[in-house]
Design a protein around this nucleic acid. Structure first.
Length: 193
DNA sequence: AGCGGGATTTTCT
DNA sequence: GAAAATCCCGCTT
């Protein structure tokens, strides 16, 4: 048994389970705290997933144990962060698409250069707010400077299921989940189910 | 509110 | 060499 038992499952179930959980990002003597409000699942049988092609230098973290961080550069400019899920040797992970700031908002505003909703309502935005980059690829989320803190599972009546965003393949898979009542969701009503 | 283009670089074919 | 799990700005309705 370890702290992230609930992540030892398929990416879609883990994606739902991660809603409402917190990330604690330590920078110097400050700790930024955010709540996860939007996620997407990816697995190795999924043409939209990086792990679909198998183990490569880039995807090897996805095939490792759950509870680790997978970070990649997207469109040459932005970072996206994922939490690895499923058992070892399964290429599964959950993309964090939006978070709500809880603590350290001033520093996040400095990191982003904006305030309000645009602080963290998208995968590239939240990585900028939390100063996440590929230096943290493969990081263990039980340890500083970035910890995942599990919270009680959110009720299914508060979760909206929809198709994923930004993909050119497997767009129809309903593996995006978000909190119905959050203002920080990146987009609403993308083929909600 | 919605569409279109540009920025920029790693990754694998 | 093309594509990519994005964001921002400017233009049009």
């Amino acid at each position: 048994m370890h702290a992230f038992e609930d992540l030892e499952t398929t990416a879609d179930k883990a994606a739902k389970r991660l809603l409402g959980c917190e990330l604690h990002r330590k920078i110097g003597d400050q700790t930024l705290i955010v709540k996860i409000v939007e996620t997407e699942g990816y697995d190795q049988n999924d043409p939209g997933s990086h792990s679909f092609v198998g183990v490569t230098p880039r995807t090897k973290v996805m095939f490792g144990p759950s509870g680790y961080l997978y970070v990649y550069l997207i469109y040459g400019m932005y970072y996206c962060m994922n939490i690895v899920t499923g058992p070892k040797h399964h290429g599964e992970a959950v993309l964090i698409r939006a978070v709500e700031p809880i603590s350290g908002i001033d520093l996040m505003e400095n990191n982003r250069g904006v305030a309000g909703i645009n602080l963290s309502n998208g995968p590239g935005k939240l990585c900028q707010a939390l100063k996440i980059n590929t230096n943290l690829n493969g990081h263990n989320l039980l340890e500083d400077p970035l910890k995942l803190v599990m919270k009680p599972a959110v009720k299914s009546t508060e979760i909206v299921t929809s198709t994923r965003i930004g993909l050119s393949k497997a767009q129809e898979m309903p593996w995006r989940f978000y909190m119905k009542n959050s203002d920080f969701v990146s987009r609403r009503f993308i083929t909600d189910l």
